[in-house]
C-alpha cells in the first residue's frame, strides 16, 4: 500500500509539473514534415488560372459570376484551422490549436497579397502514409474563448475581428462589380463612396437556433489521390486549390445587384455554403 501511495504521489507530482509547464515535446527523429499550400485560383472554362488582383477602384473586370455579372478582386483572405491528417492505416496527426497573447499555433491566415502566407508547414508529423486532410475555414471557439490573442489573431492588426460580436471573420473578400450600386461600409480597401464596391465578410462562430448567431465556419475533409509519405527527412507538399469563382456560384449564386455588402453572420450564409466546394485537393509533390 505504501508503495502504491508513493507511486501515486510521484504520478501526481509528475502531473503537477506537466500541468504547470508548457508542453515541450522534443522532436522525434522518426517524425517528418508536411507542407500544405493553398493556391487561390480562378477556374475558367475548366482551366485553373492564377488569380489576378486589381487596385481598389479599378474598373478592369477579369471575372464573371454565374449570373453573368462581371467583377474583380482587391482583397482575399481567410483563416485555416484545426488541421488533421489521416492515413489508411490509422495514421493520425492533429495540428493542435493554441492561442496566447504572444503566439497562435494551429491557426493560419492565408492572404492573397502575401504569398508566404499560403504555405503551411506541419512539423512533427508521425511517419506513415496519409491520404486525407481535414481543416476548418475560419476560427472556432477554441480561438476565441482564450480572449485577447496575439499573432495573426491580434484584434488590432489582423483586420479580421468583429468588435461587436467578438469573433473573427472566416473569409474576407473585397472588390468591384459594375452590377453593384455601391454603398459598401466598413471595408479595408473600399471607399464608402465607391460606386461599384462589393464586400463579403463571412464569419460567425456561434450557433444559437432561431437567431442571427449562425455558425459560418466550414469544416472540410479532402481526400488525396495518392498517399503522402511522411518520414524523417522527407517533406511531401500537398496542394489545395481554392477557386474564387465557386465562392459566387454553386450552392447559391451570389447576386451583386442585391446582397453585395455583407458584414454579419446571417447575411453571409449563402456564400459560406459555397465555401466547401471552393476548396479542392489538387496534387501532392512527394
Amino acid at each position: 500500500m505504501k508503495k502504491l501511495l508513493l507511486i501515486s504521489i510521484l504520478a501526481s507530482i509528475n502531473l503537477y509539473f506537466t500541468s504547470c509547464s508548457k508542453d515541450d515535446n522534443p522532436t522525434d527523429e522518426t517524425n517528418g514534415t508536411v507542407e500544405v499550400e493553398f493556391d487561390n485560383i480562378a477556374l475558367v472554362d475548366g482551366i485553373q488560372r492564377q488569380l489576378s488582383m486589381v487596385t481598389p477602384g479599378s474598373s478592369d473586370y477579369q471575372y464573371t459570376n454565374a449570373l453573368n455579372q462581371k467583377f474583380n478582386i482587391n482583397l482575399l483572405r481567410y483563416y485555416i484551422s484545426n488541421i488533421v491528417l489521416e492515413g489508411p492505416n490509422g495514421e493520425y496527426f492533429e495540428d493542435k490549436v493554441s492561442v496566447t497573447t504572444t503566439a497562435v499555433k494551429g491557426i493560419y491566415l492565408v492572404d492573397e497579397s502575401n504569398h508566404t502566407s499560403s504555405l503551411i508547414t506541419l512539423s512533427d508529423v508521425p511517419a506513415g502514409e496519409y491520404n486525407k486532410i481535414k481543416f476548418t475555414v475560419g476560427v472556432d471557439e477554441n480561438g476565441v474563448t482564450e480572449g485577447a490573442a496575439g499573432g495573426i489573431l491580434d484584434p488590432a492588426t489582423c483586420n479580421m475581428f468583429w468588435n461587436w460580436n467578438s469573433g473573427y471573420i472566416a473569409l474576407k473578400f473585397e472588390g468591384q462589380s459594375p452590377d453593384s450600386n455601391g454603398g459598401v461600409s466598413g471595408t479595408e480597401t473600399l471607399d464608402e463612396n465607391s460606386i461599384h464596391g462589393i464586400a463579403y465578410h463571412i464569419g460567425g462562430w456561434r450557433d444559437i437556433e432561431g437567431t442571427a448567431f449562425v455558425y459560418n465556419n466550414k469544416a472540410l475533409s479532402l481526400d488525396f489521390d495518392t498517399n503522402a509519405k511522411v518520414k524523417y527527412g522527407e517533406q511531401p507538399h500537398v496542394h489545395i486549390v481554392m477557386d474564387v469563382l465557386t465562392l459566387f456560384n454553386g450552392e447559391n449564386d451570389i447576386d451583386f445587384t442585391g446582397n453585395h455588402n455583407v458584414h454579419k453572420p446571417l447575411d453571409g450564409v449563402d456564400m459560406a455554403n459555397n465555401i466547401p466546394n471552393a476548396f479542392t485537393f489538387d496534387h501532392i509533390h512527394q
Partner: peptide, 16 residues
C-alpha cells in the same frame, strides 16, 4: 450580450 469575453469589451469601447 454581443460580446462574449471580457477581454474584447474594450475593443468595442475604443472603436465605437
Amino acid at each position: 450580450g454581443g460580446v462574449s469575453h471580457l477581454d474584447f469589451v474594450p475593443v468595442f469601447a475604443i472603436e465605437n
